[in-house]
Design a protein around this nucleic acid. Structure first.
Lengths: 181, 181
DNA sequence: TCCTAATGTTAAGAATATTAAACCACAAGT
DNA sequence: ACTTGTGGTTTAATATTCTTAACATTAGGA
């Protein structure tokens, strides 16, 4: 897909006219018209200015590809599938069969629950925020106790483990990419 | 990182001289010299030609980043940077300068707060879980009101918007990949 | 209908990028 | 020392992009 068509597509999706975008970007409407018709091949500096009016980075612009297919977007609390067990509830945002870039989980650890004797270790990166309660997190021989509002983020190839050492339920919202189950 | 430094870095990595690359790409060595010194801002067409001599696509060129560094794993609630404003607090898990695969945010919408008149639109996928309060979410002309425990997940290329239409603060934990700010 | 405002397009001149051909510096032979 | 070759840089001429200011079309409202 050429630069002109690409720009026209993203501008349309943002719902801006050539003049509106030009004003935001600090260029003239003629420039945008010529670019969109591929009558010119814009300089990086001017294309960058144009994209800042959307806003969108050069990287995003050039990696912008086909149209996404519409999937379900909304999920009620009651319909999230549980990927965990009685000790650790893992509610996945979405349905189990859909393929996604990120696995977002609402996690509930019963008092004393832990992720097992062996350290976890897999591809990707993961992070999360503690909503309620307390949890002991170990990453690569470093251990911390996190409370509400505290958070973590690490490369999943580092050995890691979670343990609820408190006497109340601990609740976390986490995300990992790519999803691994 | 600017275009000139970027080009010099990738050219060095490919082990080519300015003249070698110029010959492969079908431009003159002067062009490459001027671009690398940021004395000019090349046109898309000429930058594309230059990159074809490596070879490398525009998309790859602009997503090319420096090698990642070792990062922290734990973050106290008080030290998360706020990427939002007074109306919408966006606390990023991690520090603002670190590069991550996922952006995990703890979001707080004041009553009446919204993400602006224009729909948001960018690369990647995103999702989240409502912790407290209520929020109206619009994705590609579909609008829903979500409460505690409800969640969403969609492709970020679909135009989307968030609005707190309730009269209490709404709190969400969200994740998006790749991060876009 | 006539006017106005908004849209995208275009022509000509100003500004900028690109080329061709030089320059300078350094290292390796002879 | 003197070439010779390779590296990056610069300059003047040329080619292209960008702006200014117009044009053409459409949609709505008085």
């Amino acid at each position: 897909m050429d630069v002109g068509a690409r720009l026209r597509m993203v501008r349309d999706r943002f719902g801006l006219s050539q003049r509106e975008l030009a004003k935001r970007a600090g260029v003239t409407n003629g420039t945008i018209s010529l670019i969109e018709q591929n009558r010119v091949s814009p300089s990086i500096s001017s294309l960058k200015k144009v994209l800042e009016g959307l806003p969108m980075t050069l990287s995003e612009f050039f990696t912008f590809d086909a149209e996404p297919q519409q999937q379900r977007a909304f999920y009620a609390a009651s319909e999230l599938p549980n990927l965990g067990n009685e000790q650790i509830q893992l509610l996945l945002v979405g349905t189990a069969h859909e393929r996604r870039d990120i696995a977002i989980l609402r996690e509930r650890y019963e008092p004393g629950a832990d992720t097992g004797p062996d350290m976890l270790l897999h591809e990707g990166q993961e992070g999360g925020v503690v909503i309620a309660g307390e949890i002991e997190v170990t990453v690569n021989n470093e251990t911390r106790v996190l409370g509400p509002g505290d958070s973590y983020y690490f490369d999943s190839k580092l050995p890691h483990r979670f343990r609820n050492i408190g006497d109340s339920i601990c609740e976390i919202v986490s995300a990992s990419s790519p999803p691994t189950f």
